[in-house]
Amino acid sequence: MGKPVLSLNNVQLTLQGNAGPVPILKGISLNVERGESIGLTGPSGSGKSSLLMLMGGLESATGGTITALGQDFATLNEDALARFRRDHMGIVFQSFHLIPTMTALENVATPLELAGDRDAFDKARAELEDVGLGDRTDHYPSQLSGGEQQRVALARAAAPRPDILLADEPTGNLDSTTGETIIDLLFNLRDRHGATLVLVTHASELAARCDRIIELRDGALA
């Protein structure tokens, strides 16, 4: 085994609530190997999404260390974390989180542009065709269905060919048929580009498609 792509060591997260500090994650230690797919499951409020946010550097841990591709997140400031995500990560959210003032094509091209890719738009167009949206490139998110929006989000996450794909309940806002299509696309992309995948999901059958399932309960590994 090589060096893990993602390494979490005794990671803690405590957020400030109205009634005082609320412990969300209580000492998680976990290694994810290159190319591996992990299904992160657990009941609502168990801390799955928070853990994913920490893995993406979108949130700072209040204790422990997180290392991705050998880079300790604690040593990176916000902009450096953004650049790290730009170069190595793709993230898919439950609520798609497309920028409403951009067309589908512009949404997908944005991370490539941020990385200075001169062929950003050509690659974005190809990526949209890959997810079956070649004819909707000029549509704004408000003109697309939920399934179509999530496909744009997938294309956006995959376009820069990230080393790590993080997906936070990507089918949570979709009906089961659309959800299945999205998951197929997600695994397809991951298989084709060989990325490491961390998938947060409620559904055990989705988790079962991953190499390994990790269950969280009350902020700790079950």
Binding site: E78, A82, R83, R85, R86, H97, T110, A115, R156
Partner: peptide, 9 residues
């Protein structure tokens, strides 16, 4: 979202 996609402040 832009920060998530890698944009600096």
């Amino acid at each position: 979202v832009l920060k998530t996609l890698g944009a600096s402040r």
